[in-house]
Write a protein that binds this DNA or RNA. Structure first.
Lengths: 207, 207
DNA sequence: TAGATTGTTAATCGATTAACAATC
DNA sequence: TAGATTGTTAATCGATTAACAATC
């Protein structure tokens, strides 16, 4: 039986991971929940609580082993799977993601690019050739794609999602500003840029 | 005295806004919390609760006037301010944002681009010339920039944030994967792509 | 030992859900 | 009027914060 972990906790794990990686680069061997909290503006109690969800990571009176904690959080997040991404829709945003350097350091690789526009098909972005999205099934199988990244216009996103799922991908990262209907077996994360920008506008208006 | 609105509510308002805009395009005059909820996978009770925070928007037994509700939510979010953005760091992501078409439809305009790289300064992206970030004060004043968008590498982000604040911007939209220290008077929204992608990885690993 | 820090239980806080009176 | 749907109060649920025993 799987324990249910709150989304709030899951969303903080990448922050811990990032900070631990920096601490590792600084060759800091041990870190306390206090110091980790200071670096992230998160209370130490919150951090200890989050970590305790997954087991005992630290040593009382001492703190957490930086490298060990980093690795264990990486494993909890599933980063060791080296997920393989296909980006569908090679416009400005899709192209930027194809070049995004921070993916690889987290264990993700962009292995395929797809577009339906004849002018874009066949061109290369960051050394990867753009394929015709009509060949999605083939490409997903050939390249063992795990995750479909949707960067097409909102009007095309649902149909692209369905094609990706039919082709056998295991998760969707959606940048189109629209609610996608996907079966509960396919994890979906929405990255709606207008939400954050609108929230910023709200807070600025309150001043 | 300002009422405190929960971040959860604020983050749902852009979704309501987006859906109402689509309903307006469909020339739907009235919409119920039920229908709005169906389109967004949010319970109608949640929607009514969110809206009730700001006053009475609907008519009992009838529903909500689509256009009116859309406009009122837009006003709550402060979209009528037509905020002016400057993007700092014209790499792949900054360039993609400079071309991002969904901003203008929400009432945001990209009015300035800044970079410190001599090879990029002077070039044009989407019809806007890239300025030297050393000239930040001037550019922010000349172009009446409200919001600074940070798309520089993590190591430069804190210093860019400080320069933007010194130049007088009113809010920061940060894409660099690092915790920025800014005074509480400057609203800050972080758009950390690795959080969403890692959360997706987590959910995929649980299957 | 004394000081530091975790892991965990209990208390609090806040957000969501349920229920329903008001009313169109 | 009967049916529909809001706005709001009460109940529930879940997440955060506080407190502290355990222990390095």
């Amino acid at each position: 039986m799987k324990k249910i972990i709150s989304q709030a906790t899951i969303d903080r794990l990448p922050l811990y991971f990032r900070t631990l990686r920096l601490a590792e680069e600084e060759e800091l061997p041990i870190i306390s929940s206090d110091e980790l909290g200071r670096r992230l503006d998160i209370t130490p109690e919150q951090i200890r609580k989050d970590l305790a969800t997954f087991g005992q990571f630290g040593r009382k009176g001492i703190g957490y082993d930086v490298r060990e904690l980093k690795n264990r959080i990486g494993n909890i997040l599933g980063l060791q799977n080296n997920w393989r991404l296909a980006i569908v829709g090679i416009g400005h945003l899709g192209g930027a993601l194809a070049n995004y350097v921070n993916f690889s350091s987290l264990g993700f690789s962009v292995v395929a690019l797809l577009d339906k526009n004849e002018k874009i098909i066949g061109s290369e972005v960051n050394g990867i050739k753009v394929n015709d999205s009509a060949r999605m099934n083939e490409v997903v199988a050939e390249k063992s794609v795990d995750i479909g990244v949707i960067t097409v216009p909102a009007g095309e996103a649902q149909s692209v999602a369905e094609q990706l799922i039919a082709a056998g991908i295991k998760g969707i990262w959606n940048f189109a500003p629209i609610k996608l209907n996907v079966p509960p077996t396919v994890p979906l994360v929405n990255e709606d840029l207008s939400v954050g920008l609108s929230a910023l506008s709200y807070h600025m208006s309150q001043k």
